[in-house]
């Protein structure tokens, strides 16, 4: 029993954090949101070169995985910097394509960060149900997968872009038909996607908290920093508590990859991030309510991640179906 990150994992997080800080992600996100993904793609390449996507890919195909704990470490940092693009979807795609016939063809390029992939998961809701068949960033993804009841398809194209409440997320329908890749793709892609989403949400929440703490320390009213008022402090303390109790669920899920643990991590981290977003918006006052101010880039993502890869209630169902933590 040693439930703590090791020195290498902490160093990995720190190096990603430094790289992403230097990348000035807010301006990259704004380009991406406008449909100009050039800088986002360049950043993607650097994230790939740092080995992030390789963590979901077996060594046989150019990867370093599967290493879910390290992947969670990385996704916390990606969330902290609100990195745009189909990050979670690329991880899910790597898992869906892990069978021997397909792996050779797709995985080396995904692992290296050369290919962005996206996935429409039609299996999770009946055909035509809200969101079924939609994929994130389909117009920039080089590999567009449709997970349908009859198998895994390589979609031939995508429909028009629909905007998301998170300006960095560009929603696209994937075209029907295309190439049937396999009738029986691996089953654990949903777990990996939920884990990555949970970690990303945790990072989003931590960034929102940090930015808000900075703001209330600097902003003065009535001659004192507003952060000295108990009404302000206690909301931030609650945000910190929610995030600190989401963190062990995220890493615990990465260790066990038990579906109930993963679902608990997903719902808890996403709700903690979303509550933190609501607090962050409120404590910034009107400036936080503007599109121009960078806080908006994290606020929208906290909302979007809540329902990505499983609504809170779907995840709770998975928790009640499992028996996580029982000896």
């Amino acid at each position: 029993m040693r439930f703590a990150l090791d020195t290498e994992q902490r160093a990995f997080a720190a190096s990603l954090h430094a790289m992403l800080t230097a990348a000035d992600t807010p301006s990259v996100i704004r380009d991406w949101a406008r449909g100009d993904p050039a800088r986002g793609r360049a950043l993607w390449g650097r994230i790939g070169a740092a080995g992030v996507f390789a963590l979901a890919v077996d060594e046989k195909y150019g990867g370093a995985g599967p290493r879910p704990v390290d992947l969670a470490v990385a996704f916390v940092e990606l969330g902290r910097h609100a990195v745009p693009g189909p990050l979670v979807e690329t991880v899910a795609a790597a898992v869906l394509l892990a069978g021997p016939a397909l792996a050779e063809r797709f995985l080396p390029s995904i692992a290296a960060g050369h290919t962005l992939a996206t996935v429409a998961d039609r299996e999770r809701g009946p055909e035509g149900s809200p969101g079924a068949g939609r994929a994130l960033d389909g117009e920039v993804a080089g590999v567009r997968l449709v997970r349908a009841a009859d198998g895994l398809w390589l979609a031939p194209g995508h429909g028009p872009v629909r905007r998301s409440l998170d300006p960095a997320r560009r929603l696209t329908e994937l075209s029907p038909g295309g190439e049937l890749l396999t009738r029986d793709p691996p089953k654990d892609a949903l777990g990996w996607a939920r884990l990555a989403t949970a970690a990303q949400a945790l990072g989003v929440g931590l960034a929102l908290l940090d930015r808000t703490v900075d703001h209330v320390r600097r902003r003065t009213q009535f001659g004192v920093p507003v952060g000295s008022f108990q009404a302000v402090k206690h909301r931030l303390a609650d945000a910190r508590i929610a995030l600190e109790f989401a963190r062990p669920l995220v890493f615990g899920a990465a260790v066990t990859m038990d579906p109930a643990d993963v679902a608990a991590a997903k719902v808890t981290a996403c709700e903690a991030a979303y509550r933190t977003a609501v607090t962050a918006l409120h404590l910034h006052g009107a400036i936080g309510y503007t599109a121009e101010y960078d806080l908006s880039l994290w606020l929208g993502k906290a909302r979007a991640l809540r329902t990505a890869w499983g609504t809170p209630e779907e995840c709770r169902d998975a928790v009640l179906d499992g028996d996580a933590g029982r000896p």
Partner: peptide, 25 residues
């Protein structure tokens, strides 16, 4: 009560893992 029961189950697991993390420090 589904949501509240699930939250109780998740909260206990979160507290267990939080404590394992403290014990590992």
């Amino acid at each position: 009560a589904r949501r509240r029961v699930a939250d109780a189950v998740m909260g206990a697991r979160a507290y267990q893992l939080f404590t394992y993390a403290s014990a590992s420090r």
